[in-house]
């Protein structure tokens, strides 16, 4: 265990533990946009930055990836540099996704109501946090979508920007998306997502549409639970 200070409060942590987890445990509020307990850290969004003072130097680090070590003396979660980086990131994201309420709300907390830049019109609400891709790969285990291209034109998409064989229509990406960018629609027994149409299964007990048949087949294959059981919706099971 090592001891150091966060904003003047003495905290204790295990070596190797991420700063973000320690700070949150002690009730400090640090915003994140690409971090998720189930997915871990990726270091993309940069809003979780804090300033760390060690014996040798003071520097800005991403708290979600910075491991606690003996060298840490003090951590500042709201220094001028920290605020500058967060404010800048949120202004840049607001210019990218002007329609996103989540970004607008967070930006306002740092005094940004309108970005000084020309607003993008083609990015929707996607901030490229990559959580959907990581969910699809690591949680669902299908890798139907990926992060395509390079630089400012990067985009989340299934391969070749067309309906993907791998997608099972589970909608986990939609659930994890922090800004509500990913389009999914259930209508008349059909689910539309990532340019693909899925037939929804009807629960034999309550008669409700509940999940794409493809998803149930995927689960059945993976868990050896027979389809008949899976066709019953979770409420009626």
């Amino acid at each position: 265990m090592v001891k150091f200070k966060i904003d003047n409060k003495v905290v204790e942590a295990k070596e190797g533990e991420y700063l973000l987890d320690v700070a949150r445990r002690y009730g400090f509020s640090i915003p994140t946009l690409c971090h998720h307990e189930a997915l871990g850290s990726d270091g993309r969004c940069r809003v979780c930055v804090v300033e760390v003072k060690t014996r040798w130097r003071k520097r800005i680090v991403t708290s979600c990836l910075f491991p606690v070590s003996k060298d840490i003396e003090e951590v500042y979660t709201a220094s001028e540099d920290v605020k500058l980086v967060r404010r800048t990131v949120l202004e840049l994201l607001l210019a990218r996704c002007p329609e996103s309420d989540v970004i607008r709300y967070m930006a306002a907390k740092y005094g940004i109501t309108e970005p000084r830049y020309k607003k993008d019109t083609d990015k929707g609400k996607c901030i490229l946090c990559n959580m959907c891709v990581r969910t699809c790969e690591n949680i669902v285990g299908v890798s139907a979508i990926g992060i395509i291209g390079k630089g400012p034109e990067k985009k989340i998409s299934p391969p070749f920007r067309e309906a993907s064989d791998a997608c099972i229509g589970c909608g986990a990406c939609v659930a994890v998306c922090p800004t509500g960018h990913i389009f999914m629609e259930d209508k008349d027994g059909i689910r539309l997502i990532w340019r693909k149409r899925f037939e929804l299964a009807v629960c034999p007990k309550c008669g409700r549409y509940h999940a794409p048949v493809e998803q149930l087949e995927f689960i059945s294959k993976k868990t050896n639970v027979p389809m008949e059981e899976l066709l019953v919706c979770t409420n009626c099971r």
Binding site: G43, C45, V89, L92, L128, K154
Partner: peptide
């Protein structure tokens, strides 16, 4: 801008601006 990998926000969006 051409060579940024696009992973993190400050480089991807900031350099473009």
């Amino acid at each position: 801008v051409e060579e940024s990998c696009g992973k993190c926000v400050p480089c991807r969006e900031g350099v473009k601006r």
